[in-house]
Design a protein around this nucleic acid. Structure first.
Length: 322
DNA sequence: AACTTACACAACCGCCGCGAT
DNA sequence: AATCGCGGCGGTTGTGTAAGT
């Protein structure tokens, strides 16, 4: 194999992706089953490194990604999964299949971290000291206190995750987190997706412009314009479209990529559950939950039970954020 | 209107784990 | 067992835009 020569690497393009590049990548991804990312840039005719292509695909172009503001439900999930798992955004993202880890990470860093800090300060009656840590890992706390705090945090996480999973009468006893229909926004403000919408709208408009100039699009009316195989660009884009629906109207795919994505996410969930159990195994206060008599309980069931049982938990300070 | 600041999000960088050789 | 390349992850930076002065 071998790395690309330095000179070649330096010729790689950086910075924001253009609509043409997006189209090239989407087109390639639709026509080829992905064997390795390394071959993608050359085969798709892109002057990008494989990493950049992978990132662009997974964080932006991949079908099934939900754009726009986070719902209260999602927000709760993130906050408490973060308390539970730490900054393991990929693991957290596996619980929110339509969101990317990058998206969640950004949302945490720009919104939730501040929110949590504010909350903590108001609870502790302290001024904002700029301390970003929000989990049980604060090293300044003495060990005994740290353990109690960890227990409290875990307890808090359990309660709130329980709340989050129960929102909108979610008929779970199991983790039914894969509803393909996004929950309705909790407030009119939350329903606006201007930030993403504007950027996607821009891309869509640029794509339209590009398609107009494209020979294949000549004489085509405002209907769908076949571009690559399996890839259809709908040029009747409306700026009133929202979130992923808008995106789907701009890019519609005939493959079942989103389905496979969901299946993958389900696998990720199972993996995450196992990971979480391993995580907890490191905590002396949590090890007993592994033992359910002599019965061997599947990891996912155990984790589910751990999350959802014990409904009498206090949620110190977390109510009232929303 | 011009400039500055804050914010949101996209993209990059560096590290790590894993599998292949 | 050691090495290498790839893919994935989390932290950080860059960039465009909105809000404020």
């Amino acid at each position: 194999m071998g790395r690309p020569p330095r000179g070649e690497q330096s010729r790689m393009k950086k910075g924001p992706w253009t609509p043409e590049e997006d189209i090239a990548l989407v087109s390639y991804m639709q026509q080829h089953s992905l064997s390795n990312w390394r071959s993608v840039p050359a085969n798709a005719g892109l002057l990008r490194c494989s990493k950049s292509c992978r990132l662009r695909w997974t964080n932006y172009l991949r079908p099934g990604i939900k754009r726009g503001n986070f719902t209260v439900h999602e927000e709760k999930m993130i906050i408490h999964l973060q308390a539970l798992l730490g900054n393991r955004w990929a693991a957290i993202a596996s619980y929110l299949p339509q969101r990317t880890d990058n998206d969640i990470k950004n949302y945490w860093n720009t919104h939730l971290k501040k929110k949590m800090r504010k909350l903590r300060n108001s609870r502790d009656g302290q001024a904002d000291d700029g301390d970003d840590s929000t989990d049980a890992s604060q090293s300044t706390v003495p060990r005994g206190q740290w353990e109690r705090r960890l227990q409290t945090d875990v307890q808090t996480a359990k309660q709130a995750l329980h709340d989050a999973l129960s929102v909108h009468s979610n008929p779970i006893k199991g983790l039914n987190l894969f509803d393909s229909n996004p929950l309705p926004p909790a407030s009119p403000q939350a329903s606006t997706s201007e930030g993403y919408a504007s950027s996607i709208a821009n891309i869509s408009r640029l794509l339209q412009g590009w398609m107009k100039g494209h020979p294949n699009s000549a004489k085509n009316g405002p209907t769908t314009t076949p571009c690559p195989k399996n890839f259809v660009m709908n040029s009747s884009y409306s700026s009133e479209d929202h979130d992923s629906n808008m995106f789907r109207r701009s890019f519609s795919f005939s493959s079942d990529a989103s389905l496979s994505t969901e299946l993958q996410n389900r696998n990720n969930l199972a993996h995450t559950c196992q990971t979480s159990l391993s995580f907890r195994a490191g905590s002396s206060s949590a090890q007993t939950s592994y033992m359910h008599g002599k019965e061997e309980v599947p990891a996912i069931r155990l984790f589910e039970k751990w999350l959802l049982d014990d409904g009498s938990m206090a949620t110190p300070g977390l109510d009232g954020i929303w």
